[in-house]
């Protein structure tokens, strides 16, 4: 699903935290690609993502999904997960099964899908554990498995690998690339990890103080000569 933003502005109590009206007033997040959103803390990345995911409304501007405004059908094909996910107070297995249960899938279907996800994310051994008592890596993997269980068309991820072990990062990145390649899942990911952005993204959008400074391929961003981008890249290179 193509997602386009048009002149988005978000203001909280007179403070404008996002202002995409300059050179980059139209951003295109192309279908079936993996897009990265990068930039310093407080630059408006999460705000932009929540607006695109339909979780908050912009003060001005529009978001179009394949040229259409947001509706329930489009909303239900997208999902959103963060590095501090809200897991439900039930088992890991039941968390992942939740989106399927509310869609009234067959019991066998549910069991098969959840079992595959548990294996893929290497969390089978904790499937009966309460999801409220997991390590950071375990809860992030559980949340991602839950988000993927119902095969959404668009996946929004807000720093999904912040503060977790390298092995879990590898598992998550592999799962994302696989879904993108095999199912054409459109992924939009906020990351602080520049090498991760280069490993998985085909397109990067750089935000700074609520404005967009750049939106292009990773190679072009590396070649850019904007001081803020240069500084960001040199701090996050490794």
């Amino acid at each position: 699903m193509n997602i386009e933003t048009r002149n988005i502005v978000k203001t909280y109590q007179e403070k404008t935290v996002l202002n995409l009206t300059g050179d980059y007033r139209e951003l295109l997040f192309e279908s079936e690609k993996i897009h990265g959103i990068i930039g310093p803390n407080g630059s408006g990345k999460t705000t932009l993502m929540k607006i695109m995911a339909g979780l908050i409304t912009p003060t001005a501007g529009d978001v179009l999904y394949n040229g259409q405004p947001l509706c329930q059908d489009i909303f239900s094909e997208m999902t959103y997960s963060t590095h501090t996910p809200t897991l439900f107070s039930r088992s890991v297995y039941e968390n992942i099964a939740y989106p399927l249960k509310i869609r009234k899938r067959e019991q066998n279907d549910i069991h098969q899908t959840v079992s595959q996800l548990l294996e893929e994310f290497e969390i089978t051994d904790i499937k009966n554990q309460s999801a409220r008592r997991l390590s950071g890596g375990e809860s992030q993997k559980t949340a991602l498995a839950r988000a993927l269980s119902f095969s959404p068309r668009v996946l929004f991820l807000d720093e999904p690998t912040a503060n977790i072990d390298p092995k879990s990062i590898q598992i998550i990145e592999a799962a994302l690339k696989k879904r993108n390649r095999e199912e054409g899942l459109t992924i939009i990911i906020i990351t602080h990890n520049l090498s991760q952005a280069f490993r998985i993204c085909t397109h990067l959008t750089f935000l700074d103080q609520g404005s967009c400074l750049f939106s292009d391929t990773p190679e072009k961003i590396m070649a850019a000569t904007h001081p803020t981008i240069d500084e960001f890249i040199s701090f996050n290179r490794f």
Partner: peptide
């Protein structure tokens, strides 16, 4: 609020969300 937002992103409808909330706030 977090539970409602999470439920919505996973496709929960009004009724599902109410049940979810009661269970989470049990």
């Amino acid at each position: 609020y977090e539970v409602v937002q999470t439920g919505k992103t996973l496709g929960a409808q009004r009724w599902n969300i109410l049940i979810l909330l009661v269970l989470e706030l049990k």
